[in-house]
Design a protein around this nucleic acid. Structure first.
Lengths: 112, 112
DNA sequence: ATGATAAGACACCAATAGGTGTCCCATATG
DNA sequence: CATATGGGACACCTATTGGTGTCTTATCAT
């Protein structure tokens, strides 16, 4: 069973600012134990742990036990889904000039 | 007061699947009245209206009254924030090969 | 003028989210 | 061995979320 079964929606996982801060924290250190992570927040260990569980459910972090501590590591891959989703909307927010440019480029790309 | 004051977090706004579907719907038609939007969902008008309010609070849609109907339109710009946020994490999910490529490209870009 | 319809404004409800505190166990440490 | 520490597992609480239904007003069509 090497299946990834993300119980939790990745959009949901990143909706909370605390969880985004968690991801950022984990992006800077490659692995961090829970107690050390907790130091960076103004809430109890239990709350932080819950947030990490949610991130884990979305496949955004993994954890492993080392001695008595549980160390967490970032897994950024699921964020690709959001990037793909966003790609569809890019054409709506780019300026008209930039959009013209993009459309022209698409024309050129079609001439193969 | 031409200020945009997004009361609502854009991450929060897109966390709900119904709201993402709403954005998609509005991306295809340039303007839609509430009753017509409601036809695409299996929930009451009130619920749809609430979701649209949330999107409006995040600056992702605007509405205008035309006769007795309220028409909604997509405003994709706030999604840029998410794209910017994602950019930081790209380096973590791209393959090592792709990463090497990107780093090399960055080198080239620096030689201006 | 009379209906029918679009939608705002509530009040209401159940489920979930985000936090807390406590208890317990396993593992380090003096 | 004794004790401090990291963290899992609950139970618990409150605010928010995502939905409902009803009432009312404005507008459009006959």
């Amino acid at each position: 069973m090497n299946e990834k079964s993300p119980i939790r929606d990745v959009y949901d996982a990143i909706a909370d600012p605390t969880r985004r801060k968690l991801l950022h924290l984990l992006a800077e250190a490659d692995e961090l134990p829970l107690y050390e992570i907790t130091l960076h927040f103004e809430m109890g260990r239990t709350a932080v742990s819950k947030h990490l569980t949610i991130l884990k459910e979305a496949g955004l972090v993994t954890d492993r036990k080392v001695g008595r501590e549980t160390r967490f590591r970032l897994q950024a891959a699921p964020l690709q889904e959001i990037q793909d989703w966003l790609a569809f909307y890019r054409k709506f927010w780019i300026s008209n000039v930039a959009r013209l440019q993009e459309l022209l480029q698409a024309e050129l790309d079609d001439m193969d």
